[in-house]
Design a protein around this nucleic acid. Sequence first.
DNA 1: GAATTGATGTGAAACAAATCACAAAATATA
DNA 2: TATATTTTGTGATTTGTTTCACATCAATTC
Lengths: 227, 227
Amino acid sequence: MKQITKYIIKNSLKRIFLYRACLSRLRMMGVEKVFSYTLAHETGVTSEQVRKDFSEFGIKGNKRGGYNTNELLEVMENIFHRNKEQNIVLIGMGNLGIALSKHGQFFQRNMNIVATFDIDPFKQKVRSNIPVYSLSRLKEIIDRFKVKVVILAVPEISAQEVADELIRLGIKGIVNFAPVLLKVPNDVIINNVNLCNELESVIYYVHKQIKADGSKNLEILYTGMKY
Amino acid sequence: MKQITKYIIKNSLKRIFLYRACLSRLRMMGVEKVFSYTLAHETGVTSEQVRKDFSEFGIKGNKRGGYNTNELLEVMENIFHRNKEQNIVLIGMGNLGIALSKHGQFFQRNMNIVATFDIDPFKQKVRSNIPVYSLSRLKEIIDRFKVKVVILAVPEISAQEVADELIRLGIKGIVNFAPVLLKVPNDVIINNVNLCNELESVIYYVHKQIKADGSKNLEILYTGMKY
DNA sequence: GAATTGATGTGAAACAAATCACAAAATATA
DNA sequence: TATATTTTGTGATTTGTTTCACATCAATTC
Ligand SMILES: NC(=O)c1ccc[n+]([C@@H]2O[C@H](COP(=O)([O-])OP(=O)(O)OC[C@H]3O[C@@H](n4cnc5c(N)ncnc54)[C@H](O)[C@@H]3O)[C@@H](O)[C@H]2O)c1
Ligand SMILES: NC(=O)c1ccc[n+]([C@@H]2O[C@H](COP(=O)([O-])OP(=O)(O)OC[C@H]3O[C@@H](n4cnc5c(N)ncnc54)[C@H](O)[C@@H]3O)[C@@H](O)[C@H]2O)c1
């Protein structure tokens, strides 16, 4: 059994997210030009790493002149398809689903939750400004809004069957909050987010008394990676 | 600037979570003995990887006999300090905080949210069965319950100041949901969970049309890692 | 306009992680 | 009891990622 090998490696993708967040902040502060070491310092990586990551995504700067903040952000928005809006659907309007549906940052980042779905008729009323539908309208909405990616926030027990149906309807990517390993075809991307594990990791490392060995600005360590 | 190097590597830790979830399921089904290839098959990694991971955590099996399900789970519970209850505090009872506070799995996994805090007096009433306090009682609760780890679900703008205060009060680990890189001392573990990024990663990979190249059972790929 | 400075960009080297290959051990079989 | 079988455990190898080192170029200074 072989694992996926060649794609833009996950670590550098994660770091690109960091750089972008940092750049947005710098732009707001009116900074027009950044250097690899600026980003490096702000994000706790090395400047070579920043440049290597950029080179992986084909991002070029100006010798001696660093990078233009606006241009750099624009390139990144293209990488992430932020130029055109992404229509997303959310399944499961329980505790977590409601919180996610109210989260404004998805929309700010051009990811538009066009509709949510729940099996429970009691949940099928409008909360905030996103409609809650019965699953019977899933196909209609997915087709109408050309939805390719969903957020799955249903109980563990239902996750697989809902995923099967979603894939049947043409969904190609799932952010899955249920603590199960979904069985899906090879061309479907699954991103499992397991918040219990995230908390438990922290407890583990706190108990282990892990120390940052003399590094001076190591702000973040462990979401998924030590990025 | 040097990155952290030697600790139980994150990838194997993540996989250990997978193995454990799988083992729990197998135990419920009455399976008493497992082999590395059983776990491997269920979790989509190789059997050598399973054994290498086990060896990293000092887990031993029986030559030819595989591993005893119960013993293995017990060893893992020790690794994760599941034998004794972990007291956790949650800061920020907004949309996300409420959802998390209602999430039963933390408690099932021995992570007990003993109290939640919010700056807004309106939020300071009991929801579900976890009390919501004013921040003035933070020290009292942290001391009383010997809390070392918190979940931080406050707005981006407040995250740093709240984190500073928490660390002053002796907190050593933070699961941070705000999209900021917290500046913290080296001995504090931060786990940044950025749900926008998780969604955006999926969109990125779906657009890239990443294919699993012929691997037959590649269920999960990308939470943080390709684990 | 030549020399200097300060950045990028990238092969080479070092390091880290995953896979391979097989010895060792435990059990089953004859 | 000897032999075959099955599975673990781990060095050796391969593959992947980060860091190093420096050529290259653009701007600045003399
Ligand atoms: N609440 C949290 O903070 C949290 C944290 C981590 C993980 N999770 C996970 O996220 C998932 C949702 O958690 P929750 O707390 O919101 O649970 P919940 O029970 O509050 O909500 C689940 C919702 O899904 C709906 N549902 C059930 N079956 C469905 C189906 N077949 N199709 C569509 N909708 C269906 C239910 O009606 C309900 O509204 C669970 O798998 C849980 O383990 C939740
Ligand atoms: N809602 C989501 O699904 C979601 C998803 C991803 C990330 N996040 C992030 O999680 C955080 C919380 O999100 P939310 O949607 O729950 O926001 P929210 O505004 O609904 O809740 C924030 C809560 O924090 C409280 N608060 C503010 N300042 C505080 C302080 N100094 N001390 C204590 N409490 C304070 C507020 O009173 C409020 O109740 C934000 O940083 C957000 O970006 C939320």
